[in-house]
Design a protein around this nucleic acid. Structure first.
Lengths: 198, 198
DNA sequence: ACATGCATGATACGGGTGTACCAGAAGAAG
DNA sequence: CTTCTTCTGGTACACCCGTATCATGCATGT
Protein backbone atom coordinates (compact mmCIF):
# COMPACT_ATOMS: atom_id res chain seq x y z
CA UNK A 1 0.00 0.00 0.00
CA UNK A 2 1.03 3.59 -0.43
CA UNK A 3 2.12 3.84 3.18
CA UNK A 4 -0.04 5.09 5.99
CA UNK A 5 2.30 7.99 6.68
CA UNK A 6 1.23 9.70 3.49
CA UNK A 7 -2.34 9.33 4.54
CA UNK A 8 -1.71 10.98 7.88
CA UNK A 9 0.42 13.61 6.21
CA UNK A 10 -2.46 14.53 3.92
CA UNK A 11 -4.84 14.77 6.82
CA UNK A 12 -2.44 17.05 8.63
CA UNK A 13 -2.01 19.22 5.57
CA UNK A 14 -5.76 19.65 5.17
CA UNK A 15 -6.52 20.13 8.85
CA UNK A 16 -3.86 22.80 9.12
CA UNK A 17 -5.33 24.58 6.14
CA UNK A 18 -8.59 24.66 8.08
CA UNK A 19 -6.84 26.10 11.11
CA UNK A 20 -5.12 28.71 8.97
CA UNK A 21 -8.45 29.88 7.60
CA UNK A 22 -10.08 29.81 11.02
CA UNK A 23 -7.29 32.05 12.26
CA UNK A 24 -7.34 34.60 9.49
CA UNK A 25 -10.97 34.68 8.41
CA UNK A 26 -12.87 32.89 11.13
CA UNK A 27 -14.42 29.45 11.23
CA UNK A 28 -17.56 30.46 9.39
CA UNK A 29 -15.40 31.19 6.33
CA UNK A 30 -13.86 27.76 6.49
CA UNK A 31 -16.04 25.99 3.96
CA UNK A 32 -14.97 22.67 2.55
CA UNK A 33 -14.17 24.36 -0.74
CA UNK A 34 -12.14 27.08 0.94
CA UNK A 35 -10.18 24.52 2.92
CA UNK A 36 -9.53 22.50 -0.21
CA UNK A 37 -8.26 25.58 -2.03
CA UNK A 38 -6.10 26.64 0.91
CA UNK A 39 -4.59 23.17 1.16
CA UNK A 40 -4.09 23.04 -2.61
CA UNK A 41 -6.15 19.91 -3.11
CA UNK A 42 -9.48 19.15 -4.70
CA UNK A 43 -12.75 19.32 -2.84
CA UNK A 44 -13.15 15.60 -3.33
CA UNK A 45 -9.98 14.90 -1.42
CA UNK A 46 -11.13 16.79 1.61
CA UNK A 47 -14.28 14.73 1.46
CA UNK A 48 -12.27 11.57 1.12
CA UNK A 49 -9.93 12.04 4.04
CA UNK A 50 -12.56 13.49 6.33
CA UNK A 51 -15.91 12.15 5.25
CA UNK A 52 -17.92 14.90 6.83
CA UNK A 53 -17.23 18.48 7.77
CA UNK A 54 -17.79 17.76 11.41
CA UNK A 55 -15.03 15.18 11.23
CA UNK A 56 -12.67 17.74 9.78
CA UNK A 57 -13.60 20.30 12.42
CA UNK A 58 -13.06 17.80 15.20
CA UNK A 59 -9.73 16.59 13.88
CA UNK A 60 -8.45 20.11 13.44
CA UNK A 61 -9.52 20.98 16.97
CA UNK A 62 -7.60 18.04 18.32
CA UNK A 63 -4.51 19.19 16.47
CA UNK A 64 -4.96 22.70 17.77
CA UNK A 65 -5.05 21.33 21.31
CA UNK A 66 -1.85 19.42 20.64
CA UNK A 67 -0.21 22.59 19.36
CA UNK A 68 -1.17 24.47 22.49
CA UNK A 69 0.09 21.71 24.73
CA UNK A 70 3.36 21.58 22.82
CA UNK A 71 3.72 25.32 23.26
CA UNK A 72 3.09 25.04 26.98
CA UNK A 73 5.70 22.33 27.41
CA UNK A 74 8.15 24.40 25.43
CA UNK A 75 7.49 27.43 27.63
CA UNK A 76 7.81 25.45 30.82
CA UNK A 77 11.18 24.24 29.59
CA UNK A 78 13.44 23.25 32.45
CA UNK A 79 11.47 25.27 34.95
CA UNK A 80 10.76 23.17 38.02
CA UNK A 81 9.97 25.69 40.73
CA UNK A 82 6.17 25.97 41.01
CA UNK A 83 6.18 29.73 40.67
CA UNK A 84 8.08 29.57 37.40
CA UNK A 85 5.91 26.78 36.06
CA UNK A 86 2.71 28.66 36.88
CA UNK A 87 4.03 31.86 35.35
CA UNK A 88 5.11 30.02 32.23
CA UNK A 89 1.81 28.25 31.72
CA UNK A 90 -0.33 31.29 32.24
CA UNK A 91 1.72 33.73 30.22
CA UNK A 92 2.20 31.38 27.31
CA UNK A 93 -1.57 31.38 26.79
CA UNK A 94 -1.74 35.14 26.43
CA UNK A 95 -1.66 36.33 22.81
CA UNK A 96 1.71 38.04 22.95
CA UNK A 97 3.47 36.59 19.94
CA UNK A 98 2.33 35.37 16.54
CA UNK A 99 1.89 31.75 17.56
CA UNK A 100 -0.14 32.39 20.69
CA UNK A 101 -2.21 34.94 18.83
CA UNK A 102 -3.01 32.36 16.23
CA UNK A 103 -3.88 29.68 18.76
CA UNK A 104 -6.01 31.98 20.88
CA UNK A 105 -7.89 33.35 17.92
CA UNK A 106 -8.61 29.91 16.58
CA UNK A 107 -9.76 28.66 19.95
CA UNK A 108 -12.07 31.65 20.18
CA UNK A 109 -13.49 30.73 16.80
CA UNK A 110 -14.22 27.24 18.05
CA UNK A 111 -15.65 28.51 21.29
CA UNK A 112 -18.72 30.06 19.69
CA UNK A 113 -19.23 26.92 17.67
CA UNK A 114 -19.17 24.74 20.76
CA UNK A 115 -21.65 26.99 22.54
CA UNK A 116 -24.45 26.22 20.16
CA UNK A 117 -23.61 22.65 19.31
CA UNK A 118 -25.25 20.64 22.06
CA UNK A 119 -22.46 18.29 23.02
CA UNK A 120 -20.91 17.01 19.83
CA UNK A 121 -17.57 18.59 20.54
CA UNK A 122 -18.00 18.49 24.29
CA UNK A 123 -16.16 15.33 25.14
CA UNK A 124 -13.37 16.32 22.80
CA UNK A 125 -12.77 19.84 24.04
CA UNK A 126 -14.07 20.21 27.55
CA UNK A 127 -11.33 18.24 29.21
CA UNK A 128 -8.17 20.29 28.65
CA UNK A 129 -9.35 23.32 30.65
CA UNK A 130 -10.42 21.19 33.61
CA UNK A 131 -7.16 19.22 33.56
CA UNK A 132 -5.12 22.37 33.22
CA UNK A 133 -6.88 23.95 36.14
CA UNK A 134 -6.18 20.91 38.28
CA UNK A 135 -2.53 20.95 37.34
CA UNK A 136 -2.30 24.64 38.09
CA UNK A 137 -3.94 24.18 41.47
CA UNK A 138 -1.44 21.46 42.30
CA UNK A 139 1.47 23.73 41.45
CA UNK A 140 0.05 26.49 43.61
CA UNK A 141 -0.43 24.06 46.47
CA UNK A 142 3.19 23.02 46.17
CA UNK A 143 4.31 26.63 46.25
CA UNK A 144 2.15 27.22 49.26
CA UNK A 145 3.69 24.31 51.13
CA UNK A 146 7.08 25.70 50.22
CA UNK A 147 6.09 28.89 51.99
CA UNK A 148 5.96 31.05 48.86
CA UNK A 149 2.24 31.67 49.17
CA UNK A 150 0.30 32.84 52.18
CA UNK A 151 -1.08 29.78 53.95
CA UNK A 152 -4.52 31.32 54.17
CA UNK A 153 -4.98 31.38 50.42
CA UNK A 154 -7.26 28.86 48.76
CA UNK A 155 -5.09 27.46 46.00
CA UNK A 156 -7.89 25.77 44.07
CA UNK A 157 -9.94 28.94 43.89
CA UNK A 158 -6.86 30.98 43.04
CA UNK A 159 -6.05 28.63 40.19
CA UNK A 160 -9.55 28.93 38.79
CA UNK A 161 -9.47 32.70 39.11
CA UNK A 162 -6.10 33.04 37.43
CA UNK A 163 -7.09 30.82 34.55
CA UNK A 164 -10.32 32.74 34.04
CA UNK A 165 -8.40 36.01 34.19
CA UNK A 166 -5.90 34.90 31.57
CA UNK A 167 -8.78 33.79 29.43
CA UNK A 168 -10.49 37.15 29.80
CA UNK A 169 -7.27 39.02 29.16
CA UNK A 170 -6.81 37.07 25.98
CA UNK A 171 -10.28 38.06 24.84
CA UNK A 172 -9.57 41.71 25.48
CA UNK A 173 -6.37 41.53 23.49
CA UNK A 174 -8.11 39.85 20.58
CA UNK A 175 -10.84 42.45 20.80
CA UNK A 176 -8.22 45.13 20.40
CA UNK A 177 -8.90 46.63 23.80
CA UNK A 178 -5.24 46.36 24.81
CA UNK A 179 -2.09 44.75 23.47
CA UNK A 180 -0.30 41.64 24.63
CA UNK A 181 2.27 43.50 26.70
CA UNK A 182 -0.36 45.23 28.80
CA UNK A 183 -2.17 41.97 29.35
CA UNK A 184 1.04 40.31 30.42
CA UNK A 185 1.73 43.18 32.82
CA UNK A 186 -1.68 42.76 34.42
CA UNK A 187 -1.09 39.05 34.82
CA UNK A 188 2.36 39.45 36.35
CA UNK A 189 1.01 42.03 38.77
CA UNK A 190 -1.54 39.56 40.09
CA UNK A 191 0.99 36.76 40.20
CA UNK A 192 3.35 38.92 42.24
CA UNK A 193 0.45 39.74 44.50
CA UNK A 194 -0.23 36.05 45.02
CA UNK A 195 3.35 34.99 45.55
CA UNK A 196 3.99 37.19 48.52
CA UNK A 197 4.21 36.11 52.12
CA UNK A 198 3.31 38.92 54.49
CA UNK B 1 -49.11 59.28 9.66
CA UNK B 2 -49.31 56.01 11.56
CA UNK B 3 -47.22 57.39 14.41
CA UNK B 4 -43.52 56.95 14.82
CA UNK B 5 -43.95 54.91 17.98
CA UNK B 6 -45.33 52.01 16.01
CA UNK B 7 -42.34 52.16 13.76
CA UNK B 8 -39.94 51.99 16.68
CA UNK B 9 -42.07 49.31 18.30
CA UNK B 10 -41.76 47.15 15.20
CA UNK B 11 -38.02 47.62 15.12
CA UNK B 12 -37.81 46.59 18.74
CA UNK B 13 -39.95 43.55 18.12
CA UNK B 14 -37.77 42.39 15.25
CA UNK B 15 -34.46 43.19 16.90
CA UNK B 16 -35.48 41.27 19.99
CA UNK B 17 -36.42 38.31 17.86
CA UNK B 18 -32.87 38.43 16.53
CA UNK B 19 -31.49 38.49 20.05
CA UNK B 20 -33.71 35.61 21.06
CA UNK B 21 -32.38 33.49 18.22
CA UNK B 22 -28.81 34.53 18.89
CA UNK B 23 -29.27 33.38 22.46
CA UNK B 24 -30.84 30.02 21.77
CA UNK B 25 -29.29 28.96 18.49
CA UNK B 26 -26.36 31.28 17.95
CA UNK B 27 -25.90 34.23 15.65
CA UNK B 28 -25.08 32.10 12.63
CA UNK B 29 -28.60 30.70 12.79
CA UNK B 30 -30.09 34.17 12.81
CA UNK B 31 -30.89 34.51 9.14
CA UNK B 32 -33.25 37.19 7.95
CA UNK B 33 -35.87 34.56 7.33
CA UNK B 34 -35.46 33.01 10.75
CA UNK B 35 -35.71 36.40 12.41
CA UNK B 36 -38.83 37.20 10.43
CA UNK B 37 -40.43 33.93 11.45
CA UNK B 38 -39.44 34.39 15.09
CA UNK B 39 -40.86 37.90 15.11
CA UNK B 40 -43.99 36.70 13.34
CA UNK B 41 -43.61 39.04 10.40
CA UNK B 42 -42.80 38.60 6.74
CA UNK B 43 -39.27 38.62 5.41
CA UNK B 44 -40.05 41.76 3.51
CA UNK B 45 -40.82 43.61 6.72
CA UNK B 46 -37.46 42.82 8.23
CA UNK B 47 -35.93 44.17 5.07
CA UNK B 48 -38.11 47.23 5.26
CA UNK B 49 -37.34 48.26 8.82
CA UNK B 50 -33.66 47.37 8.62
CA UNK B 51 -32.55 47.70 5.05
CA UNK B 52 -29.59 45.41 5.40
CA UNK B 53 -28.67 42.57 7.71
CA UNK B 54 -25.73 44.47 9.08
CA UNK B 55 -28.12 47.21 10.12
CA UNK B 56 -30.23 44.73 11.99
CA UNK B 57 -27.22 43.20 13.67
CA UNK B 58 -25.95 46.59 14.76
CA UNK B 59 -29.28 47.77 16.07
CA UNK B 60 -29.79 44.57 18.03
CA UNK B 61 -26.33 44.88 19.52
CA UNK B 62 -27.09 48.39 20.68
CA UNK B 63 -30.27 47.16 22.35
CA UNK B 64 -28.35 44.34 23.98
CA UNK B 65 -25.91 46.85 25.41
CA UNK B 66 -28.80 48.91 26.76
CA UNK B 67 -30.24 45.81 28.39
CA UNK B 68 -26.97 45.05 30.10
CA UNK B 69 -26.59 48.59 31.32
CA UNK B 70 -30.15 48.57 32.65
CA UNK B 71 -29.40 45.36 34.49
CA UNK B 72 -26.26 46.82 36.01
CA UNK B 73 -28.08 49.90 37.24
CA UNK B 74 -30.78 47.71 38.68
CA UNK B 75 -28.21 45.60 40.50
CA UNK B 76 -26.39 48.61 41.84
CA UNK B 77 -29.68 49.84 43.25
CA UNK B 78 -29.18 52.15 46.19
CA UNK B 79 -25.71 50.86 46.84
CA UNK B 80 -23.30 53.75 47.31
CA UNK B 81 -20.35 52.25 49.14
CA UNK B 82 -17.63 51.47 46.57
CA UNK B 83 -17.26 47.89 47.71
CA UNK B 84 -20.94 47.21 47.22
CA UNK B 85 -21.00 48.93 43.86
CA UNK B 86 -18.02 46.96 42.61
CA UNK B 87 -19.47 43.70 43.85
CA UNK B 88 -22.81 44.45 42.23
CA UNK B 89 -21.35 45.36 38.87
CA UNK B 90 -19.06 42.37 38.64
CA UNK B 91 -21.48 39.76 39.89
CA UNK B 92 -24.35 40.97 37.75
CA UNK B 93 -22.30 40.15 34.67
CA UNK B 94 -21.82 36.54 35.67
CA UNK B 95 -24.36 34.16 34.11
CA UNK B 96 -26.13 33.20 37.31
CA UNK B 97 -29.77 33.75 36.39
CA UNK B 98 -31.77 33.47 33.19
CA UNK B 99 -31.34 37.09 32.15
CA UNK B 100 -27.59 37.28 32.63
CA UNK B 101 -27.20 33.93 30.96
CA UNK B 102 -29.07 35.24 27.98
CA UNK B 103 -27.09 38.47 27.82
CA UNK B 104 -23.74 36.76 28.24
CA UNK B 105 -24.48 34.13 25.64
CA UNK B 106 -25.61 36.70 23.14
CA UNK B 107 -22.57 38.86 23.73
CA UNK B 108 -20.40 35.83 23.21
CA UNK B 109 -22.15 35.21 19.91
CA UNK B 110 -21.37 38.75 18.84
CA UNK B 111 -17.80 38.51 20.03
CA UNK B 112 -16.76 35.99 17.41
CA UNK B 113 -18.49 38.04 14.78
CA UNK B 114 -16.58 41.16 15.76
CA UNK B 115 -13.27 39.31 15.72
CA UNK B 116 -13.40 38.67 12.00
CA UNK B 117 -15.19 41.79 10.88
CA UNK B 118 -12.43 44.38 10.52
CA UNK B 119 -13.94 47.36 12.27
CA UNK B 120 -17.55 47.65 11.20
CA UNK B 121 -18.90 47.02 14.66
CA UNK B 122 -15.85 48.38 16.41
CA UNK B 123 -16.98 51.87 17.16
CA UNK B 124 -20.32 50.57 18.29
CA UNK B 125 -19.14 47.91 20.68
CA UNK B 126 -15.61 48.62 21.80
CA UNK B 127 -16.45 51.47 24.09
CA UNK B 128 -18.54 49.88 26.87
CA UNK B 129 -15.77 47.63 28.21
CA UNK B 130 -13.25 50.46 28.34
CA UNK B 131 -15.72 52.80 30.02
CA UNK B 132 -16.76 50.12 32.47
CA UNK B 133 -13.17 49.39 33.38
CA UNK B 134 -12.55 53.08 34.04
CA UNK B 135 -15.61 53.33 36.24
CA UNK B 136 -14.56 50.23 38.14
CA UNK B 137 -11.07 51.58 38.68
CA UNK B 138 -12.53 54.80 40.05
CA UNK B 139 -14.65 52.89 42.53
CA UNK B 140 -11.65 50.88 43.68
CA UNK B 141 -9.63 54.04 44.08
CA UNK B 142 -12.37 55.50 46.25
CA UNK B 143 -12.44 52.39 48.40
CA UNK B 144 -8.69 52.56 48.70
CA UNK B 145 -8.78 56.15 49.89
CA UNK B 146 -11.43 55.11 52.40
CA UNK B 147 -8.93 52.63 53.76
CA UNK B 148 -10.81 49.54 52.67
CA UNK B 149 -8.08 48.43 50.29
CA UNK B 150 -4.40 48.12 50.97
CA UNK B 151 -2.69 51.34 49.87
CA UNK B 152 -0.03 49.40 47.97
CA UNK B 153 -2.52 47.94 45.52
CA UNK B 154 -2.70 49.29 42.00
CA UNK B 155 -6.40 49.97 41.55
CA UNK B 156 -6.29 50.38 37.77
CA UNK B 157 -4.56 47.06 37.25
CA UNK B 158 -6.84 45.39 39.79
CA UNK B 159 -9.90 46.68 37.95
CA UNK B 160 -8.61 45.33 34.66
CA UNK B 161 -7.79 41.99 36.24
CA UNK B 162 -11.17 41.64 37.91
CA UNK B 163 -13.04 42.48 34.75
CA UNK B 164 -11.01 40.00 32.74
CA UNK B 165 -11.60 37.38 35.40
CA UNK B 166 -15.33 37.89 35.39
CA UNK B 167 -15.26 37.65 31.65
CA UNK B 168 -13.32 34.41 31.76
CA UNK B 169 -15.56 33.01 34.48
CA UNK B 170 -18.56 33.76 32.31
CA UNK B 171 -16.99 31.86 29.44
CA UNK B 172 -16.35 28.86 31.63
CA UNK B 173 -19.96 28.85 32.83
CA UNK B 174 -21.26 29.08 29.27
CA UNK B 175 -18.91 26.31 28.27
CA UNK B 176 -20.44 24.14 30.96
CA UNK B 177 -17.23 23.84 32.92
CA UNK B 178 -18.89 25.06 36.12
CA UNK B 179 -22.18 26.59 37.14
CA UNK B 180 -22.99 30.18 38.00
CA UNK B 181 -22.81 29.61 41.74
CA UNK B 182 -19.25 28.33 41.60
CA UNK B 183 -18.21 31.23 39.41
CA UNK B 184 -19.78 33.67 41.83
CA UNK B 185 -17.96 32.00 44.71
CA UNK B 186 -14.64 32.36 42.92
CA UNK B 187 -15.35 36.03 42.26
CA UNK B 188 -16.37 36.78 45.86
CA UNK B 189 -13.27 35.04 47.12
CA UNK B 190 -11.05 37.34 45.10
CA UNK B 191 -13.07 40.39 46.06
CA UNK B 192 -12.74 39.52 49.73
CA UNK B 193 -9.04 39.08 49.16
CA UNK B 194 -8.81 42.54 47.64
CA UNK B 195 -10.93 44.30 50.23
CA UNK B 196 -8.80 43.43 53.18
CA UNK B 197 -6.43 45.73 55.03
CA UNK B 198 -3.63 43.83 56.69
C1' DA C 1 -62.71 62.39 -4.53
C1' DC C 2 -58.49 61.78 -5.88
C1' DA C 3 -53.71 61.53 -5.74
C1' DT C 4 -49.71 60.82 -2.80
C1' DG C 5 -46.76 58.20 0.04
C1' DC C 6 -45.94 54.83 3.52
C1' DA C 7 -46.41 49.97 4.60
C1' DT C 8 -46.79 45.14 3.31
C1' DG C 9 -46.96 40.84 0.63
C1' DA C 10 -45.20 37.36 -2.83
C1' DT C 11 -41.71 35.97 -5.53
C1' DA C 12 -37.30 35.89 -8.20
C1' DC C 13 -32.19 35.95 -8.67
C1' DG C 14 -27.52 34.87 -8.22
C1' DG C 15 -24.42 32.72 -5.31
C1' DG C 16 -22.52 29.69 -1.75
C1' DT C 17 -23.13 25.49 1.15
C1' DG C 18 -22.40 20.32 2.44
C1' DT C 19 -22.82 16.08 0.43
C1' DA C 20 -23.53 12.34 -3.15
C1' DC C 21 -22.59 10.14 -7.32
C1' DC C 22 -20.02 8.38 -11.25
C1' DA C 23 -15.86 7.57 -13.70
C1' DG C 24 -11.23 6.77 -14.09
C1' DA C 25 -5.82 6.13 -12.49
C1' DA C 26 -2.49 3.46 -10.03
C1' DG C 27 -0.53 -0.07 -7.95
C1' DA C 28 -0.61 -4.56 -5.33
C1' DA C 29 -2.23 -9.57 -5.44
C1' DG C 30 -3.49 -13.65 -7.79
C1' DC D 1 -2.14 -10.25 -17.61
C1' DT D 2 -5.97 -9.69 -15.05
C1' DT D 3 -8.56 -8.33 -10.97
C1' DC D 4 -9.48 -5.82 -7.15
C1' DT D 5 -8.68 -2.16 -3.72
C1' DT D 6 -7.18 2.33 -2.74
C1' DC D 7 -7.19 6.87 -4.26
C1' DT D 8 -8.48 11.09 -7.08
C1' DG D 9 -11.07 14.19 -10.22
C1' DG D 10 -15.23 16.40 -11.99
C1' DT D 11 -19.71 17.46 -11.47
C1' DA D 12 -24.55 17.46 -9.93
C1' DC D 13 -28.13 18.08 -6.40
C1' DA D 14 -30.97 20.15 -3.12
C1' DC D 15 -30.99 23.74 0.00
C1' DC D 16 -30.38 28.18 2.27
C1' DC D 17 -28.62 32.75 2.13
C1' DG D 18 -29.13 38.18 1.51
C1' DT D 19 -31.06 41.24 -1.49
C1' DA D 20 -33.94 43.22 -5.31
C1' DT D 21 -38.20 43.73 -7.83
C1' DC D 22 -43.00 44.25 -8.72
C1' DA D 23 -47.49 44.90 -7.13
C1' DT D 24 -51.03 45.94 -3.78
C1' DG D 25 -53.33 47.85 0.19
C1' DC D 26 -54.61 51.69 3.05
C1' DA D 27 -54.67 55.96 5.27
C1' DT D 28 -54.08 60.66 4.74
C1' DG D 29 -53.73 65.65 2.94
C1' DT D 30 -55.86 68.74 -0.13
Amino acid sequence: MTAKVEHEERRRQIAEALLRIADTEGLQSASMRAVAAEAGVSLRLVQYYFTTKEGLLLDALTRLGAQLQARMERWIGEARAPQEVVTAILSCILPTDAESRRITRTYAAYYTLVLNDPAVLEKQAAQPPALLEGFLAKQLRAAQEAGQIDARRDTAVSAAGLLAMVNGLGSSVLGGQRDGEEALAILTYHLDELFRTP
